[in-house]
């Protein structure tokens, strides 16, 4: 099967004054049509940078290299104009912060119909009809009234539904959801996840689902990549990640996850801290926190090694 999105050797460097810091590197993954791929990792490991790089939304001081193949085109080699046709149309983005990602001075209706009018070239009245339909689809009550309201009149959960409606407005082939539920209450979280799952299933939309929460991964994803300090350290389907994790970091993450079945439990934490981006070690980036680390781990950086056809880990002892 041809993959929908194929990221190869993606690397993002940020220039500040004369210093160049590499934030993410050696990022390789692909998403198949209709598939939900999870990206997990602690905050600061480069998940958002990855998603913004795909959407070409990074600041001008960021240098992005590698290849981002979407259908038959390399996103990084498209002109601004060509890519504008893709953004919000074939690929759309759901941000973490529903409170700030909507324009506070535009009515809800205008914000959702904007991409519809732009990309689908609908008339104003058709766009309005489509917008009301979208509001219904994301479970907004009283869509005709909400259409004329402003974001400040809605709760966080409602706003995230609006953002989702905006993202699915043009029936995109890929939705990148960057921690879409992190800012929400637990009950609202569950509703939003259900909604995203429904969209993915009904429209066959692929989702790149970014989160730091393994529970959410188990709920949502078909396959998972685990990121650590700007690199992918493990990749496998969702069952394998939970049943047979190979990388010590993934194992650490799993054992620090609360478990419903045990009544009392002491959660493990991973000791030590993530190295700074401007002083990355020459060896394995996780070595300083790893109980299994040997000399080789400190001296030479391991590759992402295939354990079997779909399971890869960046560890000498996997």
């Amino acid at each position: 099967m041809n993959s929908l999105l194929k990221v190869e050797d993606l690397k993002v460097q940020i220039k500040k004054n004369k210093d160049v810091t590499t934030i993410i590197k050696d990022i390789n993954f692909s998403i198949n049509p209709g598939e939900t791929l999870g990206v997990v990792g602690e905050s600061g490991c480069g998940k958002s940078i990855t998603s913004l790089a795909i959407m070409r939304l990074l600041d001008k001081n960021a240098q992005v290299t590698g290849k981002i193949q979407f259908e038959s085109h390399d996103i990084l080699r498209m002109t601004q104009k060509e890519f504008r046709h893709v953004r919000g149309n074939h690929i759309s983005l759901i941000f973490q912060e529903p409170m700030t990602s909507l324009n506070p001075l535009h009515k809800i209706g205008k914000q959702i119909s904007e991409p519809v009018i732009r990309h689908l070239k609908m008339s104003k009245s058709d766009a309005k009809e489509r917008t009301i339909e979208l509001l219904n689809a994301v479970g907004i009550p009283r869509p005709n009234e909400i259409y004329n309201e402003y974001p400040y009149q809605l709760s966080g959960g409602m706003r995230q539904r609006i953002v989702i409606a905006m993202a699915m407005a043009c029936n995109p082939r890929l939705i990148i959801a960057d921690e879409p539920t992190t800012a929400l209450d637990v009950t609202i979280q569950a509703q939003i996840l259900k909604l995203l799952k429904k969209i993915a299933k009904e429209n066959g939309t692929s989702i790149l689902f970014i989160t730091h929460d393994l529970g959410v991964v188990a709920e949502m994803c078909d396959r998972v990549i685990v990121m650590y300090a700007g690199q992918i350290v493990e990749e496998a389907d969702v069952r394998t990640i939970f049943k047979q994790p190979k990388h010590p970091y993934t194992k650490g993450l799993l054992s620090s996850m609360p478990n419903m079945e045990k009544e009392y439990e002491v959660l493990d934490t991973i000791e030590g801290s993530v190295p700074m981006f401007n002083e990355m070690p020459t060896g394995c980036r996780y070595a300083s926190r790893c109980k299994l680390a040997q000399d080789i781990c400190f001296n030479r950086e391991p590759d992402l090694i295939k354990a079997n056809s779909d399971h890869k880990a960046r560890c000498y002892f996997a």
Partner: peptide, 8 residues
């Protein structure tokens, strides 16, 4: 950023 992400 949202406005850009919409393809404007």
């Amino acid at each position: 950023r949202t406005a850009r992400a919409k393809g404007n």
